[in-house]
Design a protein around this nucleic acid. Structure first.
Length: 272
DNA sequence: ATCACCATTTAATTCATCCG
DNA sequence: CGGATGAATTAAATGGTGAT
């Protein structure tokens, strides 16, 4: 428990000095350990390295700026602590799933899509062929909202999942069918039903869920995982992935016969 | 068990460059 | 011009090892 307090202290420092240059050596000195040991216990508690966590915080801050202002990418990059736009841009793409400008441009459209999304039709209709992974969600008693679930390569959702979906309020089970071989972490984020568009993109208040153990997928294997949702903890890394977009892409895939037109091409046209 | 140090591997950062 | 990417530098994570 003491260990966690140390890490939280370091994370607080990061948050307070986001726009400055922060080295991990500096951080380790701040909490009184050697860099070597500091990095170890940091990863033990948060699941990622300090640098990775710091980048996540910066990208999160950048997302916020881009979501509620029409700031240029350069200005956003500088104000979250990077000295060049390139770093921000490439990390943003890696973490969120699309480059910063595209993200900024697509927020309104994705929000519209999400509101129009018909949960009834999409997931329930067909009989499943050989499921690869089945997830049982356990939200808190009186939770009412939308739950995103995905299979991620890392223990935190900082890059695109190999599979993902969303559950309408009330549903607690989902399945993924064509999952490529590999070992994944089943992670979930739950957002209380809201009318504010930004709540779907800035997820610092979202409930979190993680399956106890990673799930190994091999040819034709079947697994069942249980994910319990809980309030965010102070050392939880931020959730950066663009969840509504993943849902959109899933739907696009399901309707590929008729709807060939690409959503993001439309977005592009609307903004040029 | 907890921590520090070294050598090596791996990831982040910059700057230059390309694209639209 | 603003924004996105790639190659070369530089910082940091990791595994092994040994001290307290």
């Amino acid at each position: 428990m003491e260990k966690k307090a140390i890490i939280i202290k370091a994370i607080e420092y990061m948050k307070d000095h986001l726009d400055e240059e922060i080295t991990t050596e500096e951080l380790s000195k701040y909490v009184g350990y050697s860099p070597y040991h500091f990095v170890r216990i940091f990863k033990e508690v948060t699941g990622v390295s300090p640098r990775h966590y710091l980048s996540a915080l910066r990208i999160e801050a950048g997302k916020k700026i881009l979501a509620d202002s029409s700031s240029s990418i350069l200005k956003a990059s500088l104000s979250v602590g990077y000295r060049s736009m390139g770093t921000f841009s490439s990390l943003f793409k890696q973490y969120v799933g699309l480059p910063p400008k595209q993200y900024q441009n697509s927020i309104q459209d994705l929000y519209g899509f999400l509101n129009a999304y018909d949960f009834q039709e999409t997931d329930r209709a067909f009989q499943p062929p050989l499921p690869s992974v089945v997830c049982h969600l356990e939200p808190p008693e009186k939770f009412n909202g939308i739950i995103f679930v995905g299979l991620f390569p890392r223990p935190i959702p900082d890059e695109r999942p190999v599979a993902g979906t969303a559950l309408k309020p009330g549903e607690t089970t989902c399945a993924f069918y064509h999952v490529p071989d590999g070992t994944y972490y089943a992670l979930a984020a739950a957002i209380a039903w809201s009318l504010n568009p930004k709540d779907y993109f800035l997820l610092n208040r979202a409930l979190r869920g993680k399956a106890e153990r990673p799930v190994a997928v091999k040819q034709g294997s079947q697994s069942v995982v249980r994910i319990k949702l809980r309030e965010p903890l102070p050392y939880d890394p931020p959730i950066l992935i663009n969840l509504p977009r993943l849902l959109f892409e899933k739907v696009k895939g399901a309707n590929k016969k008729k709807n060939d037109s690409d959503f993001f091409d439309k977005v592009k046209e609307n903004n040029t």
